[in-house]
Computed example of a mutant assay.
Amino acid sequence: MTSDENTDETTEHRDGEATASEDDADSQRTDGGDRAAGDDDAELTHVDETGDVQMVDVGSKPDSKRRAVARGEIHLSASTIGAIRSDAVEKGDVLATARIGAVQAVKHTWETIPMCHQIPITNVDTDFDVREECVRLTVTVETTGKTGCEMEALEGVTTGLNVVWDMVKAAEKDGSGQYPGTRIGGVEVLTKEKRRVDESD
């Protein structure tokens, strides 16, 4: 993406209500991204005036090209990492199966997150990085539509890592059938972008 294409990019919440001023406010927070103390004007757009949950109406918004990247990792034993690298896991190809699970999760996010819109997914990219103590998964999702795709990216990451866990759980269990060293963590949205449909690629 060129510098010209970046001119209209903005961070936007999935409900489509974030503005440039909200982005500026986020950049000034020192509490790790949470709402600032005393921010009584923060609007919860998925809740109506009576407190009932609602899907946000995005029908009047113009279509934009949108892209979100999320990442997470699953910590595993050294022997399990070795088995993944040598394709020696009894259930089969761990990463190929997890990749399918991640893509399927992206496409079905609207069915599992109650207030998400069903959006047209134009591309999903999954990148697995097998490290010494963990498998890191990065999922990139692209769409052209009226609302963002960060929830789809997050769903892809969490489901993909869950599939890894399922594929290797026999190797990760201890003598009592527990998982003392297996854990999923570090799940985060790395970037979220949008630009006008009429911008040149």
Rank of each mutant, 00 (worst) to 15 (best):
T147Y: 06
S3D: 11
T159Y: 00
V124E: 04
G177A: 09
A25I: 13
L161C: 09
W110Y: 15
E193L: 14
M55C: 06
T109V: 03
E9K: 11
L95V: 10
E49T: 12
S27T: 13
I100N: 13
K61G: 06
T126D: 04
G38S: 10
G148T: 03
D201S: 13
E111L: 11
V56F: 14
V106Y: 00
V89E: 01
E9P: 00
T45C: 13
A18E: 03
Q28K: 15
P114T: 06
F128I: 09
V53M: 12
K146I: 11
V124H: 01
P120D: 13
R85N: 05
H13Y: 13
D41R: 04
D52W: 09
S200N: 12
P180F: 03
P62F: 08
S60I: 11
K192Y: 02
D174T: 07
E12Y: 05
H46D: 06
A20Q: 12
E90T: 12
R99A: 08
E142M: 05
D48W: 03
T97E: 06
D174I: 04
S60L: 10
E152A: 06
V187P: 02
R29P: 06
D93A: 10
D52G: 11
V197E: 05
V130A: 03
A105M: 06
R183K: 15
